[in-house]
C-alpha cells in the first residue's frame, strides 16, 4: 500500500493539496488503513489519468466527475463483458464468437 506522500512523489506535478481535494470529491477512493488513505496501484494509475485530464487536457473541475463517471461506466461494461466471456467454457465461447462474427469481426487474438 502506498501513502499519500509517496503518490505525490511518484506523480509529477501533483501536490498533496490537489490529492486531498480529489479524495474529498470522491474522484479517488482508496482503501483506508487506520483512517489514512492506503493507495493501491490502480489508484495511482487513476490519479495519473485525472492529473492528465485536469492539468494537461484542461478538463475543468466541474467536468472531471462527468468524464470519470462516463469512464467508470465504460470500464464497468468492459469488465462485465470480459466476465461474461470468461464464464463461458471454450466450446460455448467459440459458439458465441461464431454467432457474432457477422456483426463483430473479431481479430485473431480473440
Amino acid at each position: 500500500m502506498i501513502s499519500l506522500q509517496s503518490v505525490c512523489a511518484a506523480v509529477p506535478g501533483l501536490t498533496e493539496d490537489d490529492l486531498r481535494r480529489w479524495l474529498e470529491h470522491d474522484w479517488v477512493r482508496p482503501e483506508r488503513q487506520a483512517g489514512e488513505p492506503a493507495f493501491a496501484e490502480i489508484d495511482v494509475a487513476r490519479i495519473r489519468l485525472i492529473r492528465e485530464l485536469y492539468m494537461d487536457f484542461e478538463v475543468n473541475e466541474p467536468s472531471v466527475p462527468l468524464v470519470l463517471s462516463l469512464l467508470d461506466q465504460l470500464y464497468a461494461t468492459r469488465r462485465q463483458l470480459r466476465l461474461v466471456l470468461e464464464t463461458l467454457d471454450p466450446p460455448a465461447r467459440r459458439t458465441v464468437a461464431e454467432t457474432l462474427a457477422p456483426v463483430i469481426p473479431l481479430d485473431s487474438e480473440s
Binding site: 470522491d26 477512493r29 493501491a40 496501484e41 490502480i42 494509475a45 487513476r46 495519473r48 489519468l49 470519470l68 463517471s69 469512464l71 467508470d72 461506466q73 470500464y75 464497468a76 468492459r78 469488465r79 462485465q80 470480459r82 466476465l83 461474461v84
Partner: peptide
C-alpha cells in the same frame, strides 16, 4: 507506464464502478 485501463478491467476496477461506491458488479449484469 502502467495505464489505468490495465487495472480498470480487472476485479479491482469494481471499486470504481459507475454510480458511486458499494454493491457488486453482478447487479448491473
Amino acid at each position: 507506464r502502467k495505464f489505468y485501463r490495465g487495472y480498470a478491467e480487472g476485479a479491482q476496477g469494481g471499486r470504481y464502478r459507475g454510480g458511486g461506491q458499494g454493491g457488486a458488479d453482478s447487479a448491473a449484469f
